[in-house]
Design a protein around this nucleic acid. Sequence first.
RNA 1: GCGGACGUGGCGGAACCGGUAGACGCAGCGGACUUAAAAUCCGUUUCCCGCAAGGGAGUAGGGGUUCGACUCCCCUCGUCCGCACCA
Length: 852
Amino acid sequence: MDHYDFREAEPRWRKVWEERGTFRAVEARDRPKAYVLEMFPYPSGRIHMGHVRNYAMGDLVARYKRARGFNVLHPMGWDAFGLPAENAAMEQGVHPREWTLENIATMRRQLMSMGLSLDWSREITTCLPDYYRHQQKLFLDFLEAGLVDRRETWVNWDPVDLTVLANEQVIEGRGWRSGAPVEKRRLNQWVLRITAYADELTDALAGLERWPEKVRVMQTNWIGRSEGLKMLFEIAGMDRRLEVFTTRHDTIFGASFMALSPEHPLSAELADESPGLARFIEECRRTGTGEEAIERAEKKGFDTGLKVIHPFDGRELPVFVANFVLMDYGSGAIFGCPAHDQRDLEFANAYDLDVIPVVVPHGREPAGFAVTSEAFRGDGRLANSDFLDGLPVEEAKEAVASRMEADGTGKRTVNYRLRDWGVSRQRYWGCPIPVIHCAACGIVPVPEGDLPVRLPDDVDLERPGNPLDHHPRWKHAACPRCGAGALRDTDTLDTFVDSSWYFLRFCSPAAGEPVTREAIDYWMPVDQYIGGIEHAVLHLLYSRFFTRALRRCGYLDFDEPFSGLFTQGMVGHETYRLADGRYLEPKDVDKGGDGVIRAIASGEAVAVGRSEKMSKSRKNVVDPETIIRDFGADTARWFMLSDSPPDRGLEWTDSGIAGAHRFVQRVARLIVEAAGGLPPPGTPVPAASGPALLLRQTVHRTIDGITGDIERFHFNRAVARIHELANAIAEFETGTPGGLGVLREALEALVCLIGPMMPHLGEEMWRTLGHDTLLADTPWPEAERALALADTVTIPVQVNGRLRARLDMPRDAANDNVEAAALSEENVRRAIGERPVRKVIVVPNRIVNIVV
RNA sequence: GCGGACGUGGCGGAACCGGUAGACGCAGCGGACUUAAAAUCCGUUUCCCGCAAGGGAGUAGGGGUUCGACUCCCCUCGUCCGCACCA
């Protein structure tokens, strides 16, 4: 019989927390705060196991901080704009808003069933005018501050979703949602000037000590700062110069050609006169940055017939248009130095251009050094390079830069891979851009008093293209400046804008302005942010930029929104496939005891695949609602924390969840069976000796260990320690004097320690132990130092590094005593034999090693 | 190609700063309770030799530093992740 009926107890405790407003966050200037935040979900329909793991971890941290005396802010909201709502609208005939709000209702109910310590009074939903009106205000502020530009740029065009994508949303040449190969188009759109902060965003990463190194590296690489030289080449017979960016100006004497991007303005100009070049450019555009082009990596070019003049030796170098030169980076033109750049070498070999080695590896003679199929990219000394001969690479760079800066043909420059953030999306379900285009006045911001610019409800999503643009009336508006008829901007903002400041809005979710200073000053920055690694660049970089942009607009005065970041691993499950490759759901697979796995329906053999991220297409999804219904929220949460380190993947297993459930019942049984005989709560713990003292030591060591584990995000180790404590309690004989008092201490510690992980069970057991307070209001237990350190230690004794005996010694015994005890062990003496002892190493309380 | 992480029993994993490798859980095996099953409890479980005491091997593979290496260094292999023609 179960000792604990979670079906009855879990909802009951959630009601108590709700009625008492236990988790309502109220600013209290005299108390230290802790802002704990998990990345808010997109309301796709139902929560999945990834959410459960994310929120189980976040809630553990929030409840732990609360128990440690912090004033905790732990809010929840919905990242509610986005394309899936429009797709659902088309497939199911529902309005995107209805679809979204219904999903939110479902997912809110599901999250509530987890028993999270959330302040639901601060809930925000980005698709509601309450939220996006403030976002529109921020956009206008950015516009005024010069942080927004309208530009015609080459954009990534998703031909399936019919919208522009940010660079960050293009993965391997394909749209991050549609998976369709992305095309290049030139389009007028709004960009946020994130590049203005490229340096700051890179440099400040060093100060984010509580961020995973991996994420910092990824952001550094994404921003891609590189220091080099911008140089100008004269074009022979033309009164213009060609600008090139390079980081290898030391190799300038090795230059044997120039190459322009097919998208370079000069390429287009020359193509007007040359049908052959026009055809070549068209060919490049079609293969574009797509993956085929990269895979083949074949270097192709078109000789324009132009020549540039080498700035130092006056040679004439041919100018090509080449498929491997990117318009996006630097100036869209390069000088080719085949001997020291692999791509240039391949190109030179294909078009029979000179390969002039100018950097000779250390220890080699210039005379005997040639480059044929592999470019030399390492360090060395310059050769064949006039005034640079003999210099090491770095000094040669300096010399070239100084000389070119002096005569005005070059300038030291920093280049970034990062592009400005294009935020215009030709979609309906997003935040309208609060701008009016007037034929007479140009671009006119919507006056603040007219905000929000609301999305119209009646919209035709069936028609391909931009829904707001197609709307019969919505875009027509009077120009706020001259009153004449004008047009609203019919694009909406990238949904990543919505998530770039929501954490600020949580501080004062009902305020009449976007954010309020007092609330932000108290709560921000987020002390612990928790979410998936997939946002390592996108969301986290945008949010860091937004915080700086808000600083410039005077809304706040700090730079970094998240002082601590933790990225949790995904939840996976094995996959099951038939011979023909079709996937089967776990419930359609029979894992018979004989080790052979079959499809239940047909009896066919099933191949078991490794654990992969849960997804509908792989049919390896386990629905959290079912699990919570059958096993309870605490069991689900406990399992999410048990099996793997939090930053690694967790494999879902049926036996794992069953084991977690067994442990819930075991804890309940332990406490229910003991509770009747215990001294009342508040009774001082009696002086203990023997087994009772050992139990006390275990209790205090466990408290100490788990506290450290939680602080360091080692939740799986905390779980293991709780198991050990439960085992120690189960083995404890209460018959010894004072035993029951010690048992009470141990059980109370157990309950307090499981509280942040299994909060319903925790409350129920706290009550069972006779308390009429809430566990959620109970302080975290303190480990008594004297007890946490055992008074005897087991010291292994090695002979020549091999374990031969163990000694039980008093803690901090004198080295001489330990050595004597070790040498008198029979097994040790046998191992030493007749050989003389050469050396004895005693590490206090740790080990003895005898060297013979 | 570049950058990063990792490789430990049948499985997930533990081992903190270089000091008892395999904590804890899962699965397995043996037993108790039961008419039976479930649940629960007890024992056992890295491999090899041995009745045992004990001995030998062992943290992907090879080498090195050290009294002592899962941990540090070098090389090789493998897996995963990120970026990818970035001049």
